[in-house]
């Protein structure tokens, strides 16, 4: 066997016993052979190292792709979540918009208990009126209505009836509120416009369209409040359309 072939077999660890003996002998005796063995051994190590670089570059690409895929997956999930949120927001907005154009929607959007601008509660003297309006301001409409009722026994003031109506409305008793307001409406008091406004809203809420239209119509004619007049006009249009 020639020296070159013997070295090649040595490199791939395939020398048999006889070949190994020959190999060892040439290693002792032949300097060129020793140098060649060193060269090809080095070449084997270098080829492996070079291949390692090739594999490393390959796996780096795989890793990058996996990383990008994960990032892209996270981005995709975020976009989906964002999309769903936008859809929900659009749906809720649409529903609210639709709600605004229903009797319940108009009532829910525009009803609020009239603020106490009649009787200051800072006097702190603990009299019946103070107690009644403190309860009113604190949202305890049942107590407020009862206390006002007690006061009304001795004074039939329109203001008291009006705030009692508001207390009834605040506690959800619209028929009683309407009863008070219809009584007040007969007088040209300072609360006349407000009575019409609230009556319109309450009738609307209770489904009494003719009464609601009538009260809103009158309110529209007498009031100076442009914003509320627009609501009244919209409500009339909606009720007429239905």
């Amino acid at each position: 066997m020639d020296k070159k072939t013997l070295i090649d077999k040595y490199i791939i660890s395939e020398l048999n016993k006889e070949e190994q003996v020959q190999f060892d002998q040439w290693m002792k005796e032949d300097e060129k052979f020793r140098n060649d063995v060193q060269f090809y051994s080095n070449l084997s190590v270098v080829a492996e190292s070079h291949e390692k670089d090739v594999l490393s570059a390959r796996l780096t690409k795989v890793e990058d792709k996996m990383g990008n895929k994960k990032k892209s997956l996270i981005r995709r999930v975020l976009l989906i979540v964002l999309g769903v949120l936008l859809l929900v927001a659009a749906f809720v907005g649409y529903r609210l918009d639709k709600m605004k154009n229903t009797p319940s929607g108009i009532y829910a959007t525009h009803f609020e208990v009239y603020p106490n601008v009649y009787y200051p509660t800072t006097r702190g003297n603990g009299d019946l009126m103070t107690k009644a309006f403190m309860a009113y301001e604190n949202g305890d409409y049942v107590a407020a209505a009862d206390l006002l009722e007690e006061r009304i026994k001795t004074s039939e003031a329109i203001e008291l009836k009006f705030y009692q109506a508001m207390a009834y409305a605040g506690m959800g008793n619209l028929p009683l509120a309407i009863k008070n307001l219809e009584n007040i409406r007969r007088f040209q008091s300072a609360y006349y416009d407000e009575c019409l406004w609230y009556l319109g809203l309450f009738y609307l809420k209770l489904g009494n369209a003719p009464a609601a239209i009538d009260r809103f119509q009158t309110f529209y004619e007498v009031s100076d409040d442009a914003a509320k007049k627009k609501v009244a006009a919209d409500a009339i249009r909606m009720l007429n359309a239905n």
Partner: peptide
């Protein structure tokens, strides 16, 4: 050449 030497001295192919 790289491929040839790799097959021979890295992969140990005959």
């Amino acid at each position: 050449c790289q491929k040839m030497l790799t097959m021979f001295y890295y992969r140990g192919l005959d």
